[in-house]
């Protein structure tokens, strides 16, 4: 057996090369961006690197003062403010769509009249092109005399966008859920509320985490649906919209500093997710699968 596992396999080697190539494709742009963010004050947004400095990082973190040192045509939006709005929006969207999707998934546990049709209607949020949703709602709001804002209209379209993803995650979760667990909780003295709190939610924890992550990341980098619906001033725009505005004027290495910062933030979010997931799966993961087909080992 050891011989076969150690034998050189061409397909295995090719597969490894392929994986490495994909990883390079994914991370090389990030590395370039990170390097260029340390461009000297008189350097441009492309190579060569003239001196190494933290000048552009300083500009990123001092949006108020950077006007005094700005170059001609340089974009002077407050990136950090936009980043803050994007993070808050993503967090609220993640929480809202997770709660709503969880409740919807409960409704779908027992098929009802027209449940299939309702399910596909829910998926519409994924299927419809984002820009048409954005435009459509913009026209409606315009007609009603409501001014778009990141806290209202953008929030609504973001939840619409993330909800189907979260719903599918919870449908998967309930698919693996042993119905007897709820009955067991009731029989052993838990009222329906306690059964939900002490049994259903903890068992669904990995799916809740996944739903939160999906809601968060999908909202954080959403551009099309935000474009017309985060408002018209730089004070209400989310980060993707502001970045789009800046690249249409003049690109400076401040943008690279920002890109590096947000990528690191994303890494942190994923690390947090994996940490909680491992903690939850350590308790439930294997048991969820095995409990349905118990392996009866004679040694008991």
């Amino acid at each position: 057996m050891e011989n076969t596992t150690k034998r050189f396999s061409l397909s295995g080697a090719l597969f490894r090369v392929y994986i490495v190539l994909v990883l390079i494709m994914l991370y090389f742009p990030f590395v370039i961006m990170a390097v260029l963010s340390f461009q000297g004050p008189r350097g441009g947004h492309t190579f060569p690197l003239r001196e190494v400095s933290s000048w552009w990082w300083w500009k990123l973190f001092h949006p108020g003062q950077s006007t005094e040192f700005s170059d001609v045509g340089e974009f002077l939006g407050n990136y950090l403010g936009a980043l803050g709005r994007s993070l808050v929006l993503a967090l609220v969207v993640a929480i809202l769509s997770t709660i709503m999707a969880l409740m919807a998934a409960h409704a779908f546990r027992k098929p009802f009249r027209g449940s299939n049709a309702v399910f596909y209607l829910w998926l519409l949020g994924i299927i419809v092109p984002g820009i048409t949703v954005s435009l459509g709602l913009f026209l409606v709001l315009n007609r009603l005399g409501i001014i778009p804002n990141w806290t209202s209209s953008a929030l609504a379209v973001h939840v619409m966008w993330t909800l189907p993803f979260c719903l599918i995650i919870f449908l998967m979760g309930f698919n693996r859920f042993d119905l007897d667990l709820e009955d067991a909780a009731l029989v052993y003295g838990a009222n329906p509320l306690q059964a939900y709190w002490y049994v259903v939610l903890p068992v669904l924890q990995p799916f809740i985490l996944s739903s939160l992550l999906f809601g968060f990341t999908l909202s954080l980098d959403e551009f099309q649906r935000s474009l017309l619906l985060t408002g018209t001033t730089l004070e209400t725009q989310t980060l993707p919209v502001m970045i789009m505005a800046s690249v249409t004027t003049r690109i400076t290495p401040t943008l690279y500093a920002l890109g590096t910062l947000t990528t690191l933030l994303s890494f942190a979010v994923i690390a947090l997710y994996i940490f909680f997931l491992i903690r939850a799966e350590r308790k439930t993961g294997e048991a969820l699968v095995e409990i349905r087909e118990p392996k009866a080992e004679g040694e008991a």
Partner: peptide, 27 residues
């Protein structure tokens, strides 16, 4: 059911996967 003082051993056992053995028994 939660006010009946009746216990039920399920065919699937229906042990709570997020609790350890003690947590299950003392539930």
């Amino acid at each position: 059911p939660y006010e009946r003082n009746v216990a039920l051993v399920f065919q699937s056992f229906a042990l709570f996967p997020h609790l350890d053995v003690l947590g299950n028994v003392e539930f």
